[in-house]
Design a protein around this nucleic acid. Structure first.
Lengths: 219, 219
DNA sequence: CCCGCCGTCAACCTTTTGGTTGATCCCATA
DNA sequence: TATGGGATCAACCAAAAGGTTGACGGCGGG
């Protein structure tokens, strides 16, 4: 059987060098190409496809500074190409990241602090059409199917976004043409659903869960 | 002249592999040892010191999961050993991170997305007793000496970070062992400097200006 | 040596939030 | 049609935050 060819996607040269060194050190794995963000990854895939040398697996970081992020890139790949499974390799294992990646169609979710051997297994697994999940990712998905979970309504998310810009209740009320009382009612509901008891904690929680974007987020 | 010997400190095997591959690829740089967190780094230094083979520079990540973080480790190194300069190599370039690192006695502050050549220069620079700063870090420090009055003090930045996690004034006070009155005083100063009049707006402004990381940006 | 900034704290007052109860209207759907 | 959830609002009270004034010790630069 031929080698498993990997497309590396990570914005840090250092990390790409590390993955290249680590993966090429394994039998049966080689690097097909590298990209520094999601858009570059799509271009690489198009280029490789034209050459008839589609990679067997895409190893993708989630957070990528300025460029297209990993979730978007994963969704794009899934939309455009049937072929290469996407294996997420990232630093964080928060619910939001894991769920977003899985929803985007990732075949696996691994953490960068995983030992090399686990990484090798995951790459081979994904290339073979299987899935590879870090323990916490697996646990989360199991938990999610048993607990549907109370989610925020669109209106609540909207208020949360305004909240995060630093507006007072009165200012929010004016902005969306409702009374201050209604704003407070919404906020109480939001706090309850997020499990917090004040507005700053709500912003922190909502940002963490990617319900809203961080104030001043770029891209 | 002999080689510059580097102690790598990063919790990710992949990143260490990348740095090792990259740095050993340069003439005049070699890896003395590696450590996966601050405590391990201190132990490595003690071991190397006993062998009479102190490294010429410590290349340290700031965020290190479970173990001792990079700022603490840097401060410890500065306290215990006169010798090896510490060069920070990290993902974020917010004021908070930069200030904390410089205060802890770091000789430089570089970002992981820096091109290899810049990294090489920085390592050599630091090893030679100089400093190496990423553009944003340099700009920040310049700004602080030219207009001292308008920028936030380290203490204020620290409170701002706690603020962004959703803590109440009382909780912040307990966290940093000061009175609630002092917290309020600091907040008033912060609001003034940021041109806002409440805590959520302060978080939004500080995030936008990259004084602090977005609430819930992990790592 | 003195002045200014930083960090600390207290007392006081006003404004904003948080939390509760209860109510109306609309809309979907069981 | 009945039931429930979402969105809206009011009144009320308690708690927290915002704002002001004043004060004190330390430390560094002029």
């Amino acid at each position: 059987m031929s080698e498993v060819r990997v497309l590396l996607v990570d914005d840090h040269p250092v990390v790409r060098a590390g993955l290249r060194a680590m993966l090429t050190g394994f039998d049966g794995i080689s690097i097909a190409a590298e990209a520094s963000d999601g858009r570059a990854a799509l271009q690489e895939l198009a280029r490789l496809a034209a050459l008839g040398g589609m990679p067997d697996v895409v190893l993708m970081d989630l957070q990528m500074g300025e460029g297209m992020d990993g979730v978007t890139a994963t969704a794009e790949i899934r939309k455009l190409h049937p072929a290469p499974p996407v294996l997420i390799l990232t630093t964080y294992d928060t619910d939001a990241d894991i769920l977003a990646a899985v929803e985007a169609g990732a075949s696996g979710y691994m953490l960068k602090d995983a030992p090399p051997e686990q990484l090798r297994q995951a790459v081979l697994q994904a290339a073979a059409g299987g899935t590879a999940l870090a323990p916490r990712a697996a646990a989360l998905l199991m938990d999610r199917i048993s607990n549907p979970g109370t989610s925020l309504t669109p209106r609540e998310v909207q208020l949360l976004e305004l909240l995060a810009t630093g507006l007072s209740n009165r200012a929010i009320a004016k902005q969306v043409f409702i009374s201050e009382a209604t704003v407070k009612t919404h906020l109480v509901h939001i706090y309850g659903k997020l499990g917090v008891d004040n507005r700053t904690a709500a912003i922190a929680a909502a940002t963490q869960r990617r319900i809203i974007r961080p104030p001043g987020a770029r891209g």
